[in-house]
């Protein structure tokens, strides 16, 4: 029996809260498309429902999650994002975390394994719309270099991951001391000519970590260095000898 208008209207609130069975949701969704008054009711109730999660008590984010997400996204750089193709996921190390015993320690979403299969298939077959250059880039693991701090920055370190030679690198800092008040850290890229080019400023979080995205051509870059400069924008040329520096070539 086809439900009447009143019984469908009664289900608009459960619909807004996602509390219907799939078939009920389909029925109510179709009705809302055709019924202006129920559509208006849904707009009103959905607005209230959308506010509910904004009241949630804040839980501190794990610092590693930021670099995991940005690295995975960067692995599918601009121009390579096809419709419905998920981002490739970089094989980043996941630190130990407690879980419920019934849960697997690390279970990639199903699309991640699909992406891995897709990338492997591209590499094996060498066919399709991808050109040879792109295939090589997709199948090549990102180059990674470790750099260490000295002097006042002894103990600090950074990992430079070159995702795409001509476009993108990620620099993940760890154990960085807090910059003095009014100061920021500034990253420099140094090529064969020895001239440092500014590549971004940052302030590490309370744990001394930060991941900086260098969205520019990094071909020809031989070294990276970090100095402390005036905040919030840094400078166009370093004003001190870097105490965190290393080779990336």
């Amino acid at each position: 029996m086809t439900p009447n208008h009143d019984s469908l209207e009664e289900m608009v609130a459960p619909y807004a809260l996602g509390a219907l069975e799939p078939e009920e949701q389909e029925t109510v969704g179709a009705h809302i498309q055709a019924c202006a008054s129920c559509r208006e009711l849904l707009n009103r109730l959905s607005m209230a429902a959308a506010a509910i999660p904004l009241a949630v008590a804040e839980v501190r984010l794990p610092s590693r999650l930021r670099s995991q997400i940005l690295s995975a996204a960067a692995a599918t750089p601009p121009g390579e994002r096809a419709e419905r193709r998920p981002a490739r996921v970089l094989p980043l190390q996941r630190s130990r975390i407690s879980r419920r015993s019934s849960q697997p320690r690390w279970e990639w979403p199903s699309w991640a394994s699909n992406a891995a299969v897709a990338v492997l298939a591209i590499g094996l077959l060498g066919l399709g719309a991808w050109n040879v250059n792109l295939q090589q880039q997709l199948n090549r693991p990102p180059a990674s270099h470790q750099i260490l701090g000295q002097g006042e920055m002894a103990g600090s370190q950074a990992t430079v991951t070159t995702v795409s030679q001509d476009r993108l690198a990620l620099v993940s800092f760890e154990k960085m001391p807090q910059a003095p008040a009014g100061k920021v850290y500034e990253l420099w890229l140094i090529g064969d000519d020895g001239k440092p080019l500014p590549a971004g400023v940052f302030t590490p979080d309370q744990r001394g970590t930060y991941t900086l995205v260098v969205n520019r051509d990094v071909r020809g870059v031989r070294k990276v260095a970090v100095t402390v400069e005036d905040g919030p924008d840094g400078t166009s040329a370093p004003t001190q000898t870097p105490q965190l520096t290393g080779s990336i070539s």
Binding site: Q68, I69, A73, R81, P86, A87, S98, Q103, P109
Partner: peptide, 16 residues
Amino acid sequence: GRSEDVVQECFLKLWN
């Protein structure tokens, strides 16, 4: 752990 998985998945879904 599961919350991290969900957040990563949703940010990447938005990105894609």
